[in-house]
Simulated scan of single mutants.
Amino acid sequence: MTATDTRTPRAAARTRAAATALAVAAAGVDLGAKAWANATLPGDPVSLGLLELRLAFNPGVAFSLGDTLPAWMVIAFTGAITAAIGVFAWRTAPRSRAAAWALAVILGGAATNLADRAADGQVTDYLHTGWWPTFNLADVFIVCGGLAVVALSWRNPHDQADETPSATA
C-alpha cells in the first residue's frame, strides 16, 4: 500500500473484483443488445415513443468524429484510451469504491465499443431519439460513468462515507 491508500489491501482487492465484475457485466449487456439489434432491427425500426430502436453503424467515435480516419487508427486510439481507463480504475480502487465503480462502468462501455469496432471497423448503434445522433448502451455507460466521476470529484474527501478507515487510524 502507498501512503495515499486509505483502505486495507483486502478491501482494495474486493473493490477491484467488484469493479471488474461490473465492467464485464456492462460489456456483456451491451454486446448482447448489439447482437439483438443486428439480428432484429435491420430495416425495421421499433418506435417506443420518445425513443426509437434503429440499427446504425458508426465508423467514427462520438458524433461520428474521425469517421474518415482509417479503422486501425481509430481502434488504436480508442484502445489506448480504454487501457488508460482500466489502469486508472485499478489504481483508484484502493482509495474510492464509488470512483472505482464509476470507472468500471466507463471501462465496460469503452471495452465493448472497442470490441465491436475491432470486428468490422465500426460500432453498432441502436438507440435513436430523433434529435440526437443514434447511440448505444455502451455510450450511455460511458456518459453516466463520466458524470459520476465528475460528481465524485466535487465531494469533500473528508465526507467519503463509503470508505473504510485505514489500518493506522
Rank of each mutant, 00 (worst) to 15 (best):
M1D: 15
D5A: 15
T6F: 06
R7I: 05
P9A: 09
R10S: 15
R10D: 15
R10Y: 12
T15D: 11
R16E: 11
A17I: 13
A17E: 13
A18G: 12
A18C: 01
L22V: 11
L22A: 11
A23C: 11
A23D: 03
A25K: 12
A25P: 04
A25C: 07
A25W: 08
A27V: 09
A27C: 12
A27W: 00
G28R: 00
V29T: 06
D30N: 09
L31G: 15
L31H: 00
G32I: 05
G32H: 06
G32Q: 02
G32S: 11
A33T: 06
A35F: 02
W36C: 13
W36H: 13
T40W: 09
L41M: 15
P42R: 05
P42G: 06
G43N: 11
D44I: 04
V46S: 07
S47W: 07
L48E: 10
G49I: 11
L53C: 07
L55Y: 08
L55N: 10
F57D: 02
F57W: 08
G60P: 01
G60Y: 06
V61L: 10
V61K: 02
A62P: 03
F63L: 08
L65K: 04
L65M: 14
G66L: 02
G66S: 11
P70A: 13
A71L: 13
M73V: 15
M73I: 14
A76K: 05
A76C: 03
F77Y: 08
F77R: 03
T78G: 08
I81A: 14
T82D: 05
I85Y: 06
G86M: 06
V87F: 09
W90R: 08
R95W: 04
S96I: 07
R97D: 04
A98D: 08
A100R: 01
A102R: 07
L103G: 15
V105Y: 04
L107Q: 02
G108C: 02
G108W: 00
G109R: 01
G109K: 00
A110L: 03
T112V: 09
L114A: 07
L114V: 12
L114D: 09
R117N: 07
R117M: 07
A119P: 11
A119K: 12
D120C: 06
D120V: 15
G121P: 02
Q122G: 07
D125R: 03
L127T: 01
T129Q: 06
G130S: 09
W131V: 12
W132Y: 12
T134K: 04
T134C: 01
L137A: 04
V140C: 13
V140W: 01
C144H: 00
G145Y: 08
G146M: 14
G146H: 01
A151Y: 07
L152A: 05
S153D: 12
N156H: 12
N156E: 11
P157K: 00
P157R: 10
Q160N: 10
Q160T: 14
E163S: 13
P165E: 09
P165C: 08
S166C: 14
S166V: 01
S166W: 07
A167M: 14
A167H: 10
